[in-house]
Amino acid sequence: MDFLELAKARCTTRGFTDQGILKNDLERILSVGHVAPTACNQQPQRIIVVQTPDHLCKVQKAYKTFGSRCVLIVCRDTRNELIRPFDQKCSGDLDIGIICDHMMLAARELNIGSVMVGLFDPNIIRKEFNIPEYIVPTALLILGYPEKGFLSPERHTADRKPLSDTIMYEKYVDCTNPQM
């Protein structure tokens, strides 16, 4: 499938079968994340693969796993971050987003569903997985086979704002206030 078709086919999955992910498929997903670009190639990602029932229960203390048998705890190492000097914005969260996006697309190509979660309690994850202070739990990437299948790739026609509301050329235009 071409890239636009793949991007349209990727959707958030909340509800997974109890089927585990094949080792080769998981390795492919992780390999695609490994080649994702990061600012100045700093590669801040540190990924904990969680698959055993005992460890999945630990993740569930911080956020629900929707029945998944595989959760990636995607962390960033703060020891060598690229900091934008103008406003002190750290590139780490952007890097983690790019890495997770690559892995979600790789998963979908393999007919594996995913949901990236940022709304979890990082302190619970830190404690349960003995994560040092300089490593920041940034996202949970929950993977598995969708219980109810994938959403239609054509949903974007109705679910997305028109491009004219989100794309501007040469200057900022507030679509809610055209006089601006």
Rank of each mutant, 00 (worst) to 15 (best):
T12H: 11
V136W: 02
F86C: 04
R126M: 06
K89G: 00
V115Q: 01
L22D: 15
T17P: 06
M103V: 00
D54T: 12
F129K: 09
E133M: 01
A107Q: 05
F86E: 14
N123M: 13
R76P: 04
Y134R: 04
T17E: 10
Y134G: 03
I135K: 01
Q42G: 07
V50T: 12
D77A: 05
C40N: 11
Q60H: 09
N123G: 10
V71A: 12
G97I: 00
K61P: 05
R108N: 07
I99S: 01
T52H: 13
T138K: 14
Q43W: 01
A62V: 09
C11V: 09
A106T: 01
V49C: 12
I73E: 10
A62C: 08
M103D: 00
I112M: 11
V32L: 07
L141F: 03
E109Y: 14
P85Q: 05
F120L: 00
V74S: 10
C70K: 06
A139T: 09
C11P: 06
Q51S: 14
L143N: 07
R10F: 07
A39N: 01
I83Y: 06
I142C: 12
T65F: 11
Q51L: 09
C70H: 08
K89M: 05
K61T: 08
N111G: 04
I125K: 05
I125Y: 04
L94D: 01
P85W: 08
V74K: 08
A36T: 05
I96C: 03
D77Y: 08
T13I: 15
I125F: 04
C11A: 14
E133I: 01
L141K: 05
C100R: 01
V50A: 14
G20F: 06
I125C: 03
H102R: 00
I96G: 03
N80M: 09
I124W: 02
P122V: 04
P37K: 10
D77E: 10
N123S: 13
I99C: 03
